[in-house]
């Protein structure tokens, strides 16, 4: 029985990147929330970091410092392939959530109101998928990611 779910997401708004984590109960009700301030790479930084900029900002600058603050090691759910790579840097089970055409291997999960979704592990950590067979969750993970996204966008305007 999963007691806690950790949703990690990052957002980009006008070249400002930020990330947030919502730890929820199985119904999606938030227990803890963490988020970062915005990081805005300069044009020079964009050249210096090249194509690796997005991953570097998402993983090294945003996700890892956020995950360092977690009190325990819950399961992490992400919705972007880019963030799934955080698994290579932390010892926390991490799964990618998709609504269709999931990468292999994957497991099908029934969400709230019968809406199904899929979870896939990082290719180096397929064992993260253990315990996800025939699971039903009373929430829509994409709705939770949307909450993080909206919160980050509004928090960016507040700072």
């Amino acid at each position: 029985m999963i007691e806690k779910l950790t949703f990690l997401d990052c957002s980009e708004d006008q070249n400002t990147h930020s990330a947030g984590i919502i730890i929820t109960d199985p119904r999606g009700v938030p227990r803890d929330v963490y988020h970062t301030s915005g990081v805005t790479p300069t044009p020079l930084q964009e050249i210096l970091y090249g194509s690796s900029l997005e991953t570097y900002v998402a993983i090294d600058c945003l996700a890892l410092p956020l995950l360092k603050n977690l009190r325990d090691e819950p399961l992490i759910l992400v919705r972007s392939q880019k963030l799934l790579h955080v698994r290579a840097r932390v010892k926390i089970k991490t799964l990618l959530v998709t609504s269709g055409s999931p990468p292999c291997p994957h497991k099908r999960v029934e969400g709230s109101l019968g809406r199904e979704f899929f979870v896939s592990p990082h290719y180096q950590f397929v064992e993260d998928l253990e315990g996800w067979s025939d699971l039903t969750l009373d929430l829509d993970p994409f709705e939770v990611f949307e909450r993080i996204s909206l919160f980050l966008s509004k928090a960016g305007q507040t700072v």
């Binding site: 803890d32 988020h35 970062t36 990081v39 970091y49 570097y56 945003l62 928090a155």
Partner: peptide
């Protein structure tokens, strides 16, 4: 030109005195 690490905010959603967020 190094990308600076961002600030981390931790929220207590049940606080009676919510902060700026």
């Amino acid at each position: 030109e190094l990308i600076q690490k961002p600030k981390i905010f931790i929220h207590n959603l049940h606080s009676t005195k919510p902060g700026r967020f």
